[in-house]
């Protein structure tokens, strides 16, 4: 059985002083992978500037817009149609404990292969010790499930207490944050135990009351030696599955912000955006 999603992304940028030119790159297009397929995409803007299709440094698809004229307000709208396969993740992963899994995790081959996602970045470095402990007597997957549950239990979802630059020491102190913060924290702890982990940016279908705040969502993917990349959503204590529509991944948020721009303008600017995800069951 498949799910069909209609996703709308809308953004509005407002500039205090007229901007004389700009370049924006949008990293908002759902990727096509084993469990999801992008059926159609459409992107428009209020200034009718032609849209260029490009990629970011990690080969994810982007839109680019380069207005030559002056403007104070610009609005963007994107529509995507995605088909998502419903798949039982538990069939993919090995939940049984094996010593071999740990040996592989520590092998030079595995570490070299996944080196990029074992590096600590500013946003994914732990300031000191955390209360979560790995148990080497259970499988890696179970440990990560525990970590997922621990974050959900210990931290409270709350907007406007953190921003994109907030480091983990602050989050550990206030025990509050949003999906980005919990994702960074998860990544930091998992990497500490040698599990390659990456930041995923995407859309969450909130039909079931999950936290995501009608914005873009963030979760984690970890690479397990025998199962490959598995998604964990610490904000909702979920395994990322049919409700998670992936756009891109990177080491942390800085590798996948939905919008990047260079704007020739002085003074303040404001960006508002929102996301709608509608689901429909396919026969």
């Amino acid at each position: 059985m498949n799910l069909e999603y209609n996703i709308t992304y809308a953004a509005k940028n407002t500039y205090e002083n007229e901007a004389s030119g700009a370049l924006w790159q949008f990293l908002i297009i759902p990727e096509t992978n084993e469990t999801q397929e992008l059926i159609s995409d459409d992107f428009s803007n209020s200034l009718q500037i032609p849209v260029e299709h490009s990629i970011n440094g990690y080969n994810f698809k982007t839109y680019r817009i380069r207005p030559g004229q002056s403007f104070e307000i610009i609005e963007f709208t994107a529509n995507f149609k995605v088909v998502k396969k419903i798949k039982n993740i538990f069939e993919q992963v090995s939940q049984l404990y094996s010593k071999e899994e740990y040996n592989q995790l520590r092998s030079i081959d595995f570490r070299a292969e996944n080196d990029v996602f074992l590096r600590f970045t500013d946003l994914t470095s732990l300031p000191g010790k955390v209360d979560f402990k790995f148990d080497e007597n259970i499988s890696l997957f179970d440990n990560l499930q525990n970590l997922n549950a621990w974050i959900k239990k210990e931290f409270t979802f709350k907007t406007n207490v953190t921003d994109i630059d907030t480091d983990l020491s602050h989050i550990l102190e206030i025990k509050q944050g949003v999906c980005q913060d919990f994702t960074h924290l998860f990544i930091a702890i998992a990497k500490k135990y040698g599990i390659p982990s990456r930041y995923v940016s995407g859309y969450l279908h909130q039909g079931n009351g999950y936290f995501g705040d009608s914005q873009m969502h963030a979760w984690v993917e970890c690479c397990l030696p025998e199962s490959g990349w598995i998604g964990f959503d610490p904000t909702n204590n979920l395994i990322a599955a049919e409700n998670h529509i992936k756009v891109a991944h990177g080491k942390d948020y800085n590798d996948c912000p939905p919008i990047k721009g260079i704007v020739f303008s002085s003074g303040k600017n404001e960006t508002e955006y929102n996301v709608k995800v509608l689901a429909q069951q396919q026969q």
């Binding site: 370049l23 970011n56 440094g57």
Partner: peptide, 17 residues
Amino acid sequence: PLEFKPDSSLGVPGLMA
């Protein structure tokens, strides 16, 4: 600046892609 230091004016936005 799209890919590396965002405030660099020496380079070319989009060059890496």
